[in-house]
């Protein structure tokens, strides 16, 4: 089966847990205010009621005006949304591309503004991620955290 956003949404388990802090991250775009939308606002506007309840988000928290999904954004809106995501990146990290060097968030932002090949890659990758996240929310695959706080110390299972 091809690895596509649609397939990843369809085959996702419906118990992806998010803590409250995750709701601050950027997803789509609010046309009438020309600003990025937080995941909290997106959940308030677009998620099934049980997802909203699980995340303690109220429908009235949805912004006035239509939220554009990432797939509906024009180039300028997409660029601004990606810049907003990059502003949220941890300051202590860089993105390395095998064969093409390392970039901190400020360098990635410059590449996005200038439309360089790296910048275009970042836009494409970020928009695909937002499309997946929006899809997971709308399909009801997300819920509030029910146990221990998520930590950075993720363990990939290499023993299979």
């Amino acid at each position: 089966m091809a690895i596509t956003v649609a397939n990843l949404v369809r085959s996702a388990p419906d118990d992806i847990e998010l803590p409250e802090e995750a709701l601050n991250q950027t997803v789509g775009w609010l046309s009438n205010e020309q600003r990025p939308v937080s995941l909290r606002e997106f959940v308030a506007a677009q998620a099934p009621a049980r997802v909203q309840a699980s995340l303690h988000v109220k429908p009235w928290e949805a912004p006035k005006g239509r939220i554009k999904r990432v797939t509906e954004l024009d180039d300028d809106e997409l660029r601004h949304m990606v810049l907003s995501v990059l502003e949220e990146a941890p300051p202590e990290v860089v993105l390395s591309i095998v064969g093409d060097g390392s970039y901190d968030a400020a360098a990635l932002a410059r590449a996005v503004r200038r439309g360089t090949p790296i910048g275009r890659q970042v836009i494409e990758a970020t928009s695909r991620h937002i499309e997946l996240l929006e899809g997971l929310v709308e399909a009801g695959k997300i819920k509030g955290l029910t146990h221990e706080e998520t930590t950075r110390d993720l363990k990939i299972d290499l023993d299979f």
Binding site: E21, A22, Q25, V85, E88, I130, L133
Partner: peptide, 11 residues
């Protein structure tokens, strides 16, 4: 995606 600053990594 469970972190408020993890979106760039997730992408």
């Amino acid at each position: 995606i469970a972190r408020s600053n993890g979106a760039a990594e997730a992408a």
